[in-house]
């Protein structure tokens, strides 16, 4: 829909931000931290393109540092949710009948819950930490993928080649993983990419509420949480981390959409 240029830009942006954020581990920014006693945030200038925060830290460097966390959380949470979703979808689709009906009702039920709120409660109960955030986000976002995989399995389970595999006496799991799953891979990848965008958004909300990444680690959400105290005096602290989240998720959505179009043969 948005054409090739948007997708190319998106891939370029994500690659750039990944490379820069990973190289930050070794290089760091010369002005990363200069605690010069000046605790007033300074507005963007030639030395600090995105300005500095209340501790004199360069916001651009902090955003690249935060990118590792935000992208990392998105990636790992997405892996978790794709794994859970695929296993449950495969199981449900292959079992069929009452089991399938029951699992899908449970999936419907979970999808009807205010998930963000449940994530919030679990974070409060477990104690906020990065690992907990990743696991909880992953464990509460698999439902869409489970539905998708199940639908794919249902649509192919009566195909002749699956029947042939059955006739040869292969075990249901072998058929599911070796013969049926490869057909669902393209749609799993698409919804995995979209799930990653969602996970990055959820992480930013959690960290914004102080229930995700804990200081001194920075994520884009926690930078925004910090910025609310300086909204009147240093608005640049609130602008660039939000832009970083938006551009990253936008890129993922563009890429996901293009892949979806390709997979469905040009139908939009």
């Amino acid at each position: 829909m948005m054409g090739n240029w948007a997708t190319r830009l998106s891939i370029g942006f994500l690659t750039l931000i990944s490379i820069l954020s990973i190289s930050m581990i070794w290089i760091g920014h010369p002005n990363d931290i200069h605690l010069n006693g000046n605790t007033n945030p300074t507005s963007p200038d030639i030395h600090h393109i995105l300005g500095t925060d209340d501790l004199g830290r360069d916001i651009g460097s902090r955003i690249l540092d935060g990118a590792r966390i935000s992208l990392g959380v998105g990636l790992i949470a997405m892996t978790i949710s794709v794994s859970i979703g695929t296993i449950i979808g495969l199981f449900s689709g292959f079992m069929g009948g009452l089991t399938d009906e029951l699992i899908m009702r449970v999936v419907d039920f979970i999808m009807g819950l205010p998930t963000l709120f449940i994530i919030l409660i679990i974070q409060v109960i477990l104690g906020p930490s990065l690992i907990n955030a990743i696991v909880v986000i992953g464990a509460t976002s698999w439902m869409g993928i489970a539905r998708l995989v199940r639908a794919e399995i249902l649509s192919i389970r009566e195909r002749p080649y699956i029947l042939a595999a059955r006739a040869r006496g292969f075990s249901p799991w072998r058929i599911a993983i070796r013969h049926a799953l490869p057909n669902a891979v393209s749609s799993i990848i698409v919804s995995g990419i979209l799930t990653m965008g969602g996970a990055i958004l959820t992480e930013s909300v959690l960290s914004f509420l102080g229930l995700g990444v804990q200081p001194p680690q920075a994520s884009w959400g926690s930078m925004l949480q910090h910025s609310t105290d300086y909204l009147y005096t240093a608005p640049w602290m609130a602008i660039s981390p939000g832009l970083a989240i938006t551009l990253t998720v936008l890129s993922l959505n563009f890429i996901g959409d293009t892949l979806r179009e390709r997979a469905s043969g040009g139908r939009s």
């Binding site: 829909m1 948005m2 965008g197 958004l201 930013s204 909300v205 914004f208 959400g221 925004l224 910025s227 609310t228 909204l231 009147y232 608005p235 609130a238 602008i239 939000g242 989240i245 938006t246 551009l247 998720v249 936008l250 993922l252 959505n253 563009f254 959409d257």
Partner: peptide, 29 residues
């Protein structure tokens, strides 16, 4: 094309950041 782009943007912006930016523009500035 424009509306599609806007909808993509709407899906990608964190809601709480929209709130912050609205406060920044319409209340603070």
């Amino acid at each position: 094309m424009l509306i599609t782009f806007i909808t993509f943007l709407g899906m990608s912006i964190p809601t709480f950041w929209i709130g912050l930016m609205l406060i920044l523009i319409f209340s603070v500035t």
